[in-house]
Design a binder for these strands. Structure first.
Lengths: 349, 349
DNA sequence: TTGAAAGCGGTACCAA
DNA sequence: TTGGTACCGCTTTCAA
């Protein structure tokens, strides 16, 4: 009588188990299991008999039980370091939206699924989840999340800050190369005073950007013009751009905006400051926002290629998982500069 | 000798199990389990002895085994119907980004975690995942995903298309109320020819919007001016707006843009068409994009309040899960009209 | 207060 | 070809 409730709500029918199917089919657990999994050798008649019973009863194997046997869950925890924003908000950033979906897609292609974890969660939040590995996107400095996963010996993929620690894998964007490519491009277009707007919350990437920018300026005898935003979001980013253009003295002839802002909004701010792109001000934004291609003029963007980061990271992580190795690995991935009219003076076209 | 490898890679140390801790502590599995879980009654000395052994060995309980005992995994599958886009791309839409993060946050607050599923995946993709429930955001018509979950008797939260089916729960946005609020608002500001831009891929919500729009026009003796986009993304949306403004005859004096486009881009397109907001054209966009508040003038938006949809849905789903009831439930949630300068004629301010 | 043993629901090894 | 049985690692009941 497989429909008899077992525990809990007496109105809910108990879920059909393998034994129930076996009893119904007049076979053993073993045989039914093999029949349904297509393993073992048995007569077609028996196999069909087992399948028919399973179908009749609406049998669905218990995933947890299988996982216990299998010894893994093919589940990867995913969290974002999320500097000073409210939980969950990171999805709203085009960069993190792409990074997250690319990570999920890459993992899924290899048969792993992503479990969304809250930002700054402690071990108690994921201790009950059968995680084979974890990912911390853009961790904070000495992120407790990172330390917890390492302490729990859960294979981890995050940024270069964990380099060399057993069981960890990192992917970093080539900040140095990216900055040089953008600055060289702007200089080649005739720019001599390139100003930079950075997010106020300095991540690893943005710190590296500032360093390279200063170094590049020194190398080219340029004086750095650098401004940081007061916080995340479009408002502070636009304000930073306005400050950059209002500053007396060293009038910039090119802008490299790394603060995450909607490109059309940046363009608007520049126009309101009485400047014109690209005629007397060149513009490059670090952004994954698709609207950049649809402004007038279209805005050149530096893409951090989140999809590449995700794919490389998943590759490193799963290679380690499947080999069982705790040998740390890592890789640097390139950025991509999409040159559009905003950084091409008209005579250059 | 708990460090002895068991199976697989002979170099990898076997994970510490409860028995290992018990042996180390000179206690039984039972006692150690109770000690670590804070259950049972025992002397503080013994409890500390067990904890110390666990700490020394770096013991971490096997989550899968606990789940098997517990009978649930507190895991919820999450998929998006995703009309004709490439997998994973939905995150890029501000609406889905917010819906996804709000859903994850709401679930997490109740002790459940979200598992990201690929779009249009079959049962084989999630059969091995211990899902207690599933969510299909914005399902297609007769979405196979929805049917699969229902067939598997997995409690499901999706839109109203499943209304009344056992084990399902729906939340829909009040499309009728939303449209009337926007149209009434625009009419109150003096608009008499309100044109509408809809996405080409008609979802349940957008079909309802078109219906209400036509009905409202009939009620107010207005002639409907409706255009749909050629596809997703900013380009087609901007093109649709341009078509609307270029159309001969019935020159619109207000625009209600439901196609998902960056608000500043819509504003740009209107300017390029020689119209001026709000002086001779009022504008409302259905959008979750924060850039709307930072344009000049700021753009009025209709928010579909994804956070509300997520919270209500999780509430209904978890209520059913915890009571074990398969009684279908559902709810309609309101939208929110953020009135900004783009829909307020200057004399009205 | 502590511990042995019986499950949770499958899978896999062997013996029949 | 089929089935008995041990086992995955933990929790819980119940007896000592």
């Amino acid at each position: 009588m497989p429909d008899t409730p077992r525990g809990g709500d007496p109105a809910a029918p108990a879920r059909i188990r393998l034994v129930d199917v076996a009893r119904e089919a007049g076979l053993s657990k073993t045989t039914v299991s093999a029949a349904l999994n297509g393993t073992g050798r048995m007569s077609d008649a028996v196999r069909e008999q087992a399948r028919e019973a399973a179908r009749r009863l609406g049998y669905r194997p218990n995933a947890t039980a299988r996982l216990l046997r299998a010894g893994h869950a093919r589940l990867i925890g995913y969290a974002v370091g999320e500097f000073a924003r409210e939980p969950g908000s990171y999805m709203v950033s085009p960069y993190f939206a792409r990074l997250t979906s690319a990570t999920a897609t890459a993992a899924l292609q290899h048969g792993y699924a992503l479990v969304l974890l809250p930002a700054r969660c402690g071990p108690e939040e994921w201790a009950d989840l059968p995680l084979d590995a974890a990912i911390v996107a853009d961790p904070l400095d000495d992120d407790p999340l990172v330390e917890d996963f390492i302490a729990a010996r859960i294979p981890l993929f995050t940024d270069r800050s964990v380099e060399g620690r057993p069981g960890t894998h990192w992917v970093d964007v080539d900040a140095d190369g990216a900055v040089r490519e953008v600055l060289d491009h702007l200089r080649a277009q005739g720019a001599r005073h390139i100003a930079v707007a950075l997010p106020g919350t300095a991540t690893r990437f943005h710190t590296a950007v500032a360093d390279t920018y200063r170094r590049w300026c020194a190398e080219h005898g340029a004086v750095p013009g650098l401004v940081t935003t007061d916080g995340p979001g479009d408002g502070p980013a636009v304000a930073a751009v306005e400050r950059l253009l209002a500053a007396p003295g060293n009038r910039p002839d090119a802008l490299f905006v790394l603060a995450e802002a909607s490109p059309p909004l940046v363009l608007d701010a520049i126009r309101r400051a009485g400047r014109s792109v690209p005629d007397d001000l060149l513009l490059v934004c670090a952004s994954e926002d698709t609207s950049a291609a649809h402004t007038h003029p279209p805005v050149s963007t530096l893409s951090l290629q989140p999809a590449l980061v995700a794919e490389k990271g998943i590759e490193l992580l799963l290679a380690a998982l499947e080999s069982g190795s705790r040998e740390p690995t890592g890789a640097v991935v390139p950025t991509r500069l999409n040159i559009r009219d905003s950084s091409l003076p008209r005579q250059g076209r």
